[in-house]
Nucleic acid binder design. Sequence first.
DNA 1: CCGTTTGTCATACAGTCGCATGATAAACGG
DNA 2: CCGTTTATCATGCGACTGTATGACAAACGG
Lengths: 196, 196
Amino acid sequence: MPKIVDHEARRRHIAEAVHRVIHDKGMESVSLREVAAEAGMSMGAVQYYVTTKDQMLLLALERIGIWIGDRMAAVAAHQSTPLDLLRATVLELLPLDEERSYLNHIGLAFQASSVVSENQAAAMRLGLPLLLSFFAEQIRAAQAAGQLAAHLDAGKEASILYAFAQGIVNATLVGHYTPKEVAALLDYHLARLRTG
Amino acid sequence: MPKIVDHEARRRHIAEAVHRVIHDKGMESVSLREVAAEAGMSMGAVQYYVTTKDQMLLLALERIGIWIGDRMAAVAAHQSTPLDLLRATVLELLPLDEERSYLNHIGLAFQASSVVSENQAAAMRLGLPLLLSFFAEQIRAAQAAGQLAAHLDAGKEASILYAFAQGIVNATLVGHYTPKEVAALLDYHLARLRTG
DNA sequence: CCGTTTGTCATACAGTCGCATGATAAACGG
DNA sequence: CCGTTTATCATGCGACTGTATGACAAACGG
């Protein structure tokens, strides 16, 4: 068995096991043993790819970032107008189906964990500016296309839009909103930014 | 020593110790021993007031709700116009100083924990509608007073405002915004809701 | 003054934790 | 074919976990 193993695949496999444990039993019950069992491998094998628990969590966190990035890129390739793209991108961040709910669930756990672990906080901060500048860029494009009002501050609107999305995620995961209400709220907000 | 003890005070004392542990070392390192040490009492004494760990966390969570409620009530007593009150109330929820940062830090940890514990999720859901309806009421009052545009949907605006606040909290706790930027964002958003 | 309640404490329990170690086997390079 | 590298494994270690239990002291009611 040894020698010919795809390290990248193994790491991804471990990261996904961490995700499942976080989702099913919460961040507090993430342990090397639990993750190893979930991944279907021995504890020693996990340790071979990840020397410490913090490293394991960091690996899982980075993979979440990649996952989100991939989803965003996929959406970006399929939309027509800047405003459609903006709307689709925000929707992509919201827990509107099982996969997005799963992703947000894990993201929220890491958000809380990040406040206490500087490593994780740093990893978390990596993706944020990219997302914000992407939002801002799309808002400016929509303004140029006459879809959004020209007087809007694109940077601030991007921040507000992102904050809105995160807040909705929190409330929805606790069970306060239904997917339908969430989409309606986003459309209501976007409508007010329109020209006219 | 026994017999003449203020049970309520003891429970509050324990809850505050839990808060400090969550804030300083994260939710994962909350244990009966750790909390007892933080509270300056023996483990047995803690167990006398709280029979299980879940109960202890629930107690700490309820106390957070009370704390926030008290802060909101205090603010509500000191403002003049509906719009001022609305603004002040939202600001009260944001991590603009050490105490509010402390409070939000703990709240975020519970938010993540709640997704896995139904008890905590239920407790979390308790305060939310109160806050949302308070926001909506204040928005309607501001509309009646001519401070906010009459065509706004008060309910949706309340939801958006709260989501915005929660999202800003997340980003700020990870270290992305400064208090000044946060306040500027809120004012920018409120300005667009104004009459005219 | 004495029995009962109320509060506190130390300790025991079985289980889990992160991490380290040494053995073992498979595939490689020579 | 053989030594080295790569990968996996089982196991051990001390520390810590949540919970249960029994002893014990202080204050009460009668």
